[in-house]
Design a binder for these strands. Structure first.
Length: 317
DNA sequence: AAAGCTTCCAACCGCTCTGAC
DNA sequence: GGTCAGAGCGGTTGGAAGCTT
């Protein structure tokens, strides 16, 4: 089942490697307007030279409104350690207990920090679980009774049971396992309202940390890239007011959503060029920014830790 | 200053799962 | 029940940035 299927996209014709701000904005704007019912069709409809999988990954891991960036708090790390002992490498499951954190991010943190920390602390498995109990005892998220269990599965089940007592439903998040009510499934909502942050919980589309400096260390202040949802309503009102693209693949029956592709697109492109520091002489919208773009006048900082280079189809990143 | 090494993470790849037909 | 397409997941990797010598 599912074996031997064709590639998800023509790799010769899609762009790969790091995303640039203009691509991000295109993706955000498209999903805001149309949602993401069909990832495979999305790049074409949004005018992106990307594979659908790549768009999905970018959205889920970085662009989606509820994604939380920056360093992991101690209690988050402890939760990961604890859940990993129970669930193993089920990163998406673990992520579901950490609102705003993605499976990819958790996987990276595990592989780069937590695994090393655990292995340096412990010689054998039992000690590992004991140390986890120690770790968790300092954390606000852990029900201590969970760690009176001798095996991690017991601990998890006990946490679930205690939660059932609290909430009545086995499907609900165990209270002991989360520092806040679970909200990580926001990604399931296909249509995203970015124009009115106040109607959604959390720092919607604040984008703080979307492009944080990867060199940051624990406790260092986070370098941020704020797309100015809240600070510059004019910008987002403009996005809202823009008539969406009418790219290939969107049929005429959809025209209530995608009426035209003319003046508004030009306005949009000009705006992007201006804001992203793209020189129209270099090809306008399609040109890669050669310098770190600064969202002048929008109270933003955009830090790309990757050196942005002109796209070469056959070179990987 | 620069070369070599290490760390880290964004993104890709390939597989499995799921639902529609 | 079989097949297929799309979505999702987990493992892996490329390369930038930081660190050491």
């Amino acid at each position: 089942m599912g074996k031997g299927r064709a590639p998800c996209c023509n790799k010769e014709k899609v762009k790969r490697g790091p995303w640039n701000p203009s691509e991000d904005l295109r993706l955000i704007t498209f999903i805001q307007k149309h949602g993401h019912q069909n990832w495979r069709a999305l790049p074409k409809q949004a005018g992106l030279l990307r594979c659908g999988k790549s768009c999905r990954l970018r959205w889920i891991n970085y662009l989606r409104p509820d994604v939380k960036r920056g360093n992991f708090a101690k209690d988050e790390e402890d939760t990961i350690i604890r859940l990993h002992a129970t669930l193993g490498n089920k990163w998406s499951k673990i992520a579901s207990y950490l609102p705003g954190r993605t499976d990819n991010e958790i996987k990276n943190v595990w592989n780069t920090h937590l695994k090393k920390r655990l292995s340096s602390m412990n010689g054998n498995v039992d000690q590992k679980y004991e140390s986890m109990a120690t770790l968790s005892s300092s954390s606000c998220v852990t029900s201590m009774s969970s760690f009176n269990a001798k095996k991690p599965n017991e601990a998890f089940e006990m946490a679930v049971v205690s939660d059932k007592a609290n909430h009545g439903s086995p499907s609900e998040e165990p209270e002991a396992l989360s520092s806040s009510s679970i909200s990580s499934n926001v990604s399931n909502s296909n249509q995203v309202n970015v124009s009115n942050p106040e109607i959604q919980q959390g720092p919607l589309f604040n984008f703080t940390g979307c492009y944080y400096n990867t060199s940051e260390e624990v406790n260092k202040p986070e370098t941020t890239f704020d797309i100015p949802l809240e600070s510059d309503l004019e910008f987002w009102n403009m996005l809202d007011s823009l008539v969406p693209f009418q790219p290939e693949g969107i049929q005429s029956h959809n025209e209530t959503q995608c009426p035209d592709f003319g003046e508004a697109e030009n306005k949009w492109l000009l705006y992007l060029e201006q804001e992203l520091g793209l020189d129209p002489k270099d090809g306008g919208f399609e040109a890669e920014p050669l310098l770190v773009p600064e969202m002048n006048g929008m109270g933003t900082m955009c830090h790309y830790h990757n050196t942005v280079q002109p796209y070469e189809p056959n070179s990987k990143q």
